[in-house]
Amino acid sequence: MSHYLPLLGILVVVAGFALRLNPMLVVVASAYVTGLLAGKSPVEVTQIFGKAFNDNRILAIVWIVLPAIGMLERYGLQQRARAVILGFRGATVGRLLVLYLLYRQITAAIGLHSTAGPAQTVRPLVAPMALAAAEKAHGELDADTIDRVKASAAATDNVGLFFGEDIFFAIGSIVLIQATLATYRIELTPIQLAIWAIPTAIAAFLIHSLRLMLLDRSLGRRGT
């Protein structure tokens, strides 16, 4: 029965979240409760925390990226992005996002997943540029249209990453697909799966590009 005691850490998590306590403190407290009930000393639990942080220290890069983006925005990054788009005569929301979709898919296909994303590019650059293109072509936008353009920018990033990353064979999703197929006695190498992901990525690009062109048309009808 004693080997079930470490599961009481789960109750700590449930109780902490139910009381709306600080999530980080709740998780740390739960980990200590679990470790102590499993027979570990406080020092050993702390050592496990330290090792886990050291093994996954690449995740801490977000604490460097986010302040950098915040500082750039404070000093006019979004305004400069809007000004660039306003300088292009034929810029539209659809054309801009199609170009971003192409960039996102190509970079994801060669393993550069972190060169773009909602925090890195969509919020500070792509969304403001798309809004500027929409305002230039169709005038002042209402709140619903602004939300629609922002959502389209975020969706473009998701589609580009999701269907582009499987072309890069050294990624976890490929390993998962390979293992799932192996349970059904279908043996494929990662490179074979990556090659077969190419037609899907092309189809996704064409379909989403069509959606973006239809977005342009719907915005045009709104302005008439």
Rank of each mutant, 00 (worst) to 15 (best):
V98G: 05
L25A: 14
L188C: 12
A52M: 05
P23A: 02
Y75G: 00
L19A: 12
G223S: 13
L99G: 14
G172C: 04
S218D: 14
G70V: 05
A132V: 03
I195T: 09
I171N: 13
A155D: 05
P124V: 02
V65L: 11
P6Y: 06
V98S: 10
L7Q: 10
K40M: 11
I48Y: 10
L72I: 04
P124W: 01
A201M: 06
I171A: 13
A143C: 00
P190N: 08
L21N: 11
K150M: 08
M1E: 12
V28Y: 08
I110L: 10
R217T: 10
I146P: 03
K51L: 13
V43Y: 14
G164D: 02
Q47S: 14
V12N: 10
Q192E: 15
L210A: 15
L7T: 14
G172I: 06
Q47T: 11
T200L: 14
Q105Y: 09
F17L: 11
Y103H: 07
P6T: 02
M71E: 06
A155E: 12
P67A: 00
P67I: 02
T46I: 07
I207D: 01
E135A: 07
T107K: 06
T34L: 07
V98R: 11
E73Y: 05
T46Q: 08
V93Q: 00
L215I: 06
L102T: 14
R82S: 14
A179C: 04
T189P: 11
A31W: 10
A132F: 03
H208C: 02
L72T: 04
V122R: 00
L5W: 15
V84A: 13
T121C: 01
P23Y: 05
Q120D: 09
V159H: 06
F168V: 02
P42V: 04
L219M: 13
A108L: 08
G111I: 08
Y184I: 04
